[in-house]
């Protein structure tokens, strides 16, 4: 049960690693199967005898997917939408989170609470009114519809995250700078932002992946193929009668890779405590 105490017996070790093995297997298998399917020609995808064994593999599906104009458009839409919406969210959130974490003014507490509250409001409640708003603004046929509506989940999320991060930056650093004649905005620019760098990068990466993965609003807002992001594009791809699982899995894997790479980066940033060093130094 605990980390302390005696050394484990051999039997207990075997049990422990067996259970761990089962967890790893269940977690990994769908990814393996995705990869395997993506590397096969259509007739092998359905071949019973060769369900699990990697033979006769080909990169043809990747070539097809990456050279199709539809997928190229969806990838570039996903990049543009995720990048633009997250940049805006992070800019809004940095200012707001600094104000809510550090400045003393009437309503700051209530505001911080309402940020959390709005973060918890599910998208299923918002998608129809957001669709009508974008329709009224005449934005439905542009990527702006997604860039703007993604603020609904990214701004509360990033503000909440940065709020926690700013609170960990020692106030003494700020006081010292202000005694030296720095203005509040000067403090934000010269002291807080550099120190909060990892926090801001983390918020950006989380925001980016949230936008990258978003499905419901993407399906609702982008009704024409050239406006779709990858999730909505792949969904439209699979509505037809024949499902090309090989290509679909290749595209799905391509959409997953950036997310996993970004996540690996964030894990490191989360662990890094930059503030500790700055107080000591």
């Amino acid at each position: 049960m605990s980390e302390s105490g005696r050394r484990r017996s051999l039997g207990a070790s075997i049990r422990l690693y067996t259970v761990l093995g089962v967890y790893l297997l269940v977690t990994t298998f769908p990814f393996y199967y995705m990869l395997l399917t993506s590397l096969r020609v259509p007739k092998d995808v359905y071949r019973r005898e060769a369900m699990l064994t990697p033979d006769n593999l080909t990169l043809a599906n990747y070539v097809t997917v990456l050279t199709s104009s539809g997928m190229q458009t969806w990838i570039s839409n996903s990049i543009v939408v995720s990048f633009a919406s997250t940049t805006i969210s992070v800019a809004i959130s940095v200012l707001a989170a600094y104000a809510l974490a550090r400045l003393k003014f009437f309503g700051a507490q209530t505001m911080a609470r309402s940020v959390l509250f709005t973060y918890l409001v599910p998208g299923s409640l918002l998608f129809i009114p957001l669709f009508l708003i974008m329709s009224n603004l005449g934005l439905l046929n542009t990527l702006w519809a997604l860039v703007i509506s993604y603020q609904t989940f990214n701004v509360p999320f990033c503000t909440w995250m940065l709020l926690g991060y700013f609170r960990t930056i020692p106030e003494e650093l700020e006081d010292a700078a202000r005694i030296d004649g720095c203005t509040r905005m000067g403090v934000l620019g010269r002291i807080i932002l550099p120190l909060a760098g990892p926090g801001i990068v983390t918020a950006f990466i989380f925001g980016f992946t949230n936008s990258w993965n978003e499905f419901l609003l993407a399906v609702v807002m982008a009704q024409r193929s050239e406006l779709r992001t990858i999730p909505a594009g792949l969904y439209s791809f699979q509505v037809g009668d024949v499902l090309l699982w090989g290509q679909l899995m290749a595209a799905a894997l391509l959409a997953t890779l950036p997310v996993i790479i970004l996540f690996t980066l964030v894990q490191r940033f989360v662990v890094q405590g930059l503030t500790v060093g700055s107080v000591k130094g």
Binding site: T27, P30, Y235, M249, I260
Partner: peptide, 21 residues
């Protein structure tokens, strides 16, 4: 980190993959 992969992967990818499985 490894066991976190299902949570990290995009949900639409998970749904597609399990539909296929």
């Amino acid at each position: 980190g490894w066991l976190l992969l299902p949570w990290v992967a995009p949900t639409f990818v998970t749904a597609l993959t399990w539909r296929w499985m």
